[in-house]
Design a protein around this nucleic acid. Structure first.
Lengths: 354, 354
DNA sequence: GTGAAAGCGCTAACAG
DNA sequence: CTGTTAGCGCTTTCAC
């Protein structure tokens, strides 16, 4: 693992960066073979004898040779980059996913290129920046509504994988849980508990997952002869938004037995606010159900019943899609539906009080 | 904003990627000038007339020309990439910081390259991967102990910015809050409340911030004639680790008035566990203080008193350092200390019970 | 199977 | 101030 003891003349450049970097040429010179042979040694299926490949690979490891990704990118080979466009990484669910994906891809020598932006033009610019690096794929993890239409160029459209949202535009790749079924499951569970006057707390944003959950929830009610759920609209997905909705919920407590929230954060905010702000007994006076199953829901201080979304399946799908795309296999399915998990019963739900 | 109507002959490559991409050459041909003039138009201080620069810039915008970062990287100009090495993005505090940094840098057209890894060899490989992209800087956001010694090559060492940890190795750049002062402040606050038998809940990991907080906490006690704080060692920074420490805390409740936790997550876990698991009254029987001021601490269900760490200052410093480094100004200070914030008094602390 | 040569898109000397 | 030329490190024809 020592430094190359071969040619070092041209290494004396003033430029600090490339001075210590061993190139393919150094390797070739060192081994007394041509650069093309060295290059071939790193190409999976190229005409090169096993012996010389082994030789090159060994010496490369010794000298610490690493192919220059810029040179590779320039000649047009596929990169080892996956772009990620996020609006708020700090969202607990997304950051969990991102963490897992990053971990998995790191093992394949793939790096994530992250661009964050909240506004439309930021998203646009971010996409351009990422596209310039010719990524294998482009993960769009953003609840931002206009994210649907971000892909101006067809080449971008082909690379995008929407995560956890279904695009309006049906010919782009997307990954989403079966949110409709999630809504149904929760409704079924609550009805099973004896509740009949259900409510749904929506983010109020144009989010496909929110909308689908709401629809599934309503559909179950309709199919079982129950009154349509009372829809409460907030204006975001945060804890604070949930807390802010508490007033309206409490006001209508006479007409509401149980409320299903579009996401856990909303549910936690609502739960805390009705309990601590209004002195409501949960679940005696009101049952509350969340969705996602983020870590905080299991904390004894909250103990929120919620619908679990299996992280593994979505992470596996993401990784699989990326691997496919990196081999130029454009995956067939356009919208991939992932089964949602079951209901995790905790302390925020109970049978209807007599 | 229409497609270039100039030369399109060579654009008919089978390769889908570069087919729609307009290069510097296209621009030059279109404008009837040389490629170097076009190139110069994008270089901040280069000898080019204002008129031709304006011309180039305008036409470039029209044609949607974007410089190819691979070509730029290859010729040795500084990249627009900042590497990030993380162990767990999902940590609330880190993901907040990362989010803010990403947002700010996106405006400078800088992208973050993310590599995640938990184990030593992963961290090593990750660093190599990132270094290959010749990033402006390398953010190491990892409480992982061995992160100190990850920089094998001197060129890597020069790029690293340790975030929120002080490296053992004093000649690398680092950014950290004044954790010692944080410890002192908390001790002072608790003592002011009348507490005398203090305890410190440590992560038990080799974390500089943890250690420094502990030292500041102890130092204040020593300086004021109090008994040395009782140190409780956990084995991580998570909520679960905090909860797991509850048993030991409760056992020694006779000797402990108040406990300062190395981080908010630990404090929240402890708080919930002593309350819900052991029926302890907080703060009547025990005061608990956290550190960091993450979002959850303000939730009414926890209402954790904590020491605030101002996000803006650390984010500003990070961005400033990166901008400096991107202009080849290697910042002078090696370890930059950031003032910690004040104590946010909430419901988990109170005066010593009589 | 291997080597020589061309070229990816861009910048940085050089001339003029 | 502008154009010409020579590479950056790598892959990929094309010969042999």
């Amino acid at each position: 693992m020592r430094a190359p003891d071969c040619v070092t003349e041209k290494k004396q450049l003033t430029d600090d960066r490339r001075s210590d970097r061993v190139t393919i040429k150094d390797l070739a010179l060192d081994l007394g073979i041509s650069v093309s042979s060295v290059s071939r040694a790193f190409q999976p299926d190229s005409r090169i004898s096993d012996s010389s490949r082994a030789l090159v690979l060994r010496r490369a490891a010794e000298l610490g040779y690493k192919a220059n990704p810029f040179a590779r990118g320039l000649v047009g080979r596929k990169t080892k980059i996956v772009g990620v466009l996020v609006s708020r990484i700090s969202s607990s669910f997304y950051s969990e996913i991102l963490n897992l994906v990053a971990n998995r891809l790191s093992k394949d020598n793939i790096t994530l290129m992250l661009v964050a932006g909240e506004h439309v033009h930021e998203i646009h610019d971010g996409l351009d920046m990422l596209m310039a690096y010719d990524p294998i794929a482009l993960l769009v993890i953003s609840s931002f509504a206009s994210a649907d239409s971000i892909a101006h160029s067809p080449s971008a459209r082909e690379k995008i994988i929407y995560v956890h949202r279904t695009p309006a535009d049906r010919d782009t790749l997307a990954l989403a849980y079966d949110n409709f079924a999630a809504g149904e499951k929760v409704a079924e569970y609550l009805v099973g508990l004896g509740h009949q006057r259900l409510a749904y707390l929506s983010s109020g944003l144009e989010s496909s997952s929110d909308q689908e959950r709401s629809e599934g929830f309503s559909a179950f009610c309709a199919a079982h002869g129950l009154a349509a759920p009372h829809i409460i609209r907030s204006s975001g997905f945060s804890y604070e938004h949930g807390a802010a909705a508490a007033g309206e919920v409490v006001e209508r407590l006479a007409e509401i037995d149980a409320v299903f929230c579009a996401a856990d954060m909303l549910a936690l905010g609502l739960l805390d606010a009705v309990r601590h702000g209004f002195g409501i007994q949960v679940p005696r006076q009101l049952s509350i159900v969340g969705c996602d199953d983020i870590a905080m829901t299991s904390w004894p201080s909250h103990s929120l019943t919620t619908l679990h979304l299996p992280r593994e399946t979505i992470v596996n799908e993401i990784v699989r899609l990326i691997e496919d795309m990196s081999e130029n296999r454009r995956p067939g399915n356009k919208l991939i539906r992932l089964a949602c998990g079951g209901i995790v019963v905790r302390g925020s739900t109970g049978p209807k009080a007599a």
